[in-house]
Amino acid sequence: MIGVQNLSVSFGAVQALRGVSFQAQTGSITAVLGANGAGKTTLLRTISGLIKPASGDVTFDEKTITNEPTEDIARMGVAHVPEGRGVIAEFTVEENLRLGALASKVNIAEGLERQYAQFPVLGQRRKQFAATLSGGERQMLAMGRALIANPKVLLLDEPSLGLAPLVTAELMGTIKQLCAEQSLTVLLVEQNAKSALRIADHAVVLHVGAVVADDAAAAVAADTRLRQYYLGLNEQ
């Protein structure tokens, strides 16, 4: 379980988060939705310790981790796949995956096998440089690299960005499956609200740094006002 209480973050005069609070339950997917600039990326970066908040707290399994360094938060089992995926283009697929395993106690060979079984395309391309991968393959590599260390929490920042609708649908299916199998706590940041709401259990909607909705995914999906004003979903 991961949560934030009254979290506020500022960049100079810009207040990116204004007293954000919510909880994400273990073994469920929580979608974090909102328009561009709503503060979604800032929220994830603050959770993983890359940004220190002006006030408020981040808690992970009842433990306050607000002031822990990013490396330690990662080692506790919070895996963050950043916006743009963060694949190291100069590394091979396998080197990227190995890097993900180094800070944990998992057996690297076993971990690699597991990820190659989950994402067969990575196995086929294990010696290729990540620079040669397609967008969808990169997203799989980034997820595999995060999952290889057996995390408890998975933070995904716009995984569907730049992917074709079919690839996105497949990716969402994988996320749903992984969450169930490994009882992960998933925070799924998306601008693509439709895809995210399809697999999410719960949804939080951000608007200019503040929470405007925090409810079951189905309820958010059914709320006409939310759909229209904050999620950009047309009634058709």
Partner: peptide, 19 residues
């Protein structure tokens, strides 16, 4: 591998637990 990752992409490395 960790040294190279820290040089190429320090933030990504930190997110993967590399000190």
């Amino acid at each position: 591998l960790q040294l190279r990752a820290s040089a190429l992409a320090p933030e990504v490395a930190r997110l993967l637990g590399v000190r």
